[in-house]
């Protein structure tokens, strides 16, 4: 049964990817990319990677198509034709590389084999020891926020930097024309059904985000997922009621500061570990006994991750739709 689901999902992924490559209409390609994201999330679920599926569903099927659609409305919907020579050249190159890669897989251990080298190294230790050392059931969170916390700090800084990059690229150039207020910024404003349903849905989305944030130690979830879901609540509100309404709650400037606060919180917790005489990001001695210390450390840095991810996603959306508003006015 699992094999069938697996093959069906992989087949659908393949078909969707071919359709994306085929599509000349970029709007169709973006919608298909959303489906592709949802399908890969389902595949991760079948593979037992619940945390990953969670993230991919929120990112690949949610925010990523949204940003691409915003871009398309600025850059145009259709792509120009390509000449046949180039298609043949690319196709033969891709087939050659693919054949070489397939030849390389012949030496790989069988799929799902417990004896594969990937299953031998540190993973057994994480599975057998993490309950004693960290004391939380979700191994993914233990590894993410404690064993490999330094790694995660790097990822958070990358996200923060990418947010800064978007800001630097698009804020330096103020949108042409007078700033627009009102309906131009929220084309959905006239849709009463969407507004009512949106109003009902947004509070549960935000509460759910907080649940995912703080329950991440016991079930699937954590700062990355919660941050994305939290941002989605605000983005939905901005789409339905307008950017100017959201700006009254969180303005662009506030989001920028909050993004930095998240990274700072993460880094500071690491320093606290050093103050107790341990390595950077080692929170063993933050409380009386090591397990409680780990708990406090993990909650604090997951909060830092959540804050940064949420505010960077919101920042990117605000900047993109700011451009959109400028273009509509100009």
């Amino acid at each position: 049964m699992e094999l069938l689901v697996d093959i069906a999902l992989l087949g659908l992924l393949l078909v969707t990817a071919v359709a994306i490559a085929w599509a000349r209409d970029l709007l169709a390609a973006v919608m298909l990319a959303g489906i592709y994201g949802l399908l890969s999330a389902s595949f991760f679920m079948v593979m037992g990677a619940v945390d990953v599926a969670f993230t991919e569903a929120a990112v690949g099927a949610g925010i990523s198509p949204l940003l691409m659609l915003a871009t398309l409305s600025l850059t145009g919907r259709f792509q120009a034709g390509t000449d046949t020579r180039r298609v043949l050249f690319s196709l033969s190159l891709v087939i050659l590389v693919g054949a070489l890669l397939v030849a390389a897989t012949l030496d790989m251990p069988a799929f799902g084999s417990p004896e594969a080298p990937a299953q031998q190294h540190v993973a057994p230790r994480y599975i057998t020891e993490s309950m004693n050392e960290i004391g939380i059931p979700n191994i993914v969170t233990s590894v993410l926020a404690s064993y490999r916390a330094y790694d995660t700090l790097g990822e958070v800084v990358v996200i923060f930097t990418a947010g800064l990059g978007v800001l630097a690229l698009l804020m330096s150039l103020p949108p042409q024309g007078e700033p627009v207020r009102g309906e131009l910024l929220s084309p959905m404003r006239g849709h009463r059904i969407l507004r009512v349903i949106g109003k009902i849905l947004i509070p549960p989305i935000l509460v759910f985000a907080l649940y995912v944030q703080f329950h991440g130690e016991y079930g699937p979830g954590g700062g990355f997922q919660a941050g994305v879901i939290f941002a989605v609540g605000f983005i939905l509100y901005a789409m339905l009621f307008g950017l100017d309404v959201v700006a009254r709650v969180v303005s662009n400037a506030v989001v920028q500061v909050i993004a930095a606060v998240g990274v700072l919180l993460y880094g500071t917790v690491g320093l606290l570990g050093m103050l107790t005489g341990n390595n950077y990001l080692d929170y063993r001695d933050l409380a009386g006994d090591p397990v409680t210390g780990q708990h406090i450390g993990i909650i604090a840095i997951e909060l830092g991750v959540g804050i940064t991810v949420a505010s960077v996603m919101m920042l990117v959306f605000f900047v993109f739709s700011g451009q959109l508003a400028g273009r509509r006015a100009g």
Binding site: T55, I63, S64, L67, T71, E155, I159, A162, V166, F224
Partner: peptide, 17 residues
């Protein structure tokens, strides 16, 4: 991969910008 997905959307946003 969990972290790579979120980093991926951040870098995609940069590319789109």
């Amino acid at each position: 991969i969990l972290t790579a997905i979120v980093v991926g959307i951040a870098t995609t946003a940069l590319a789109l910008a």
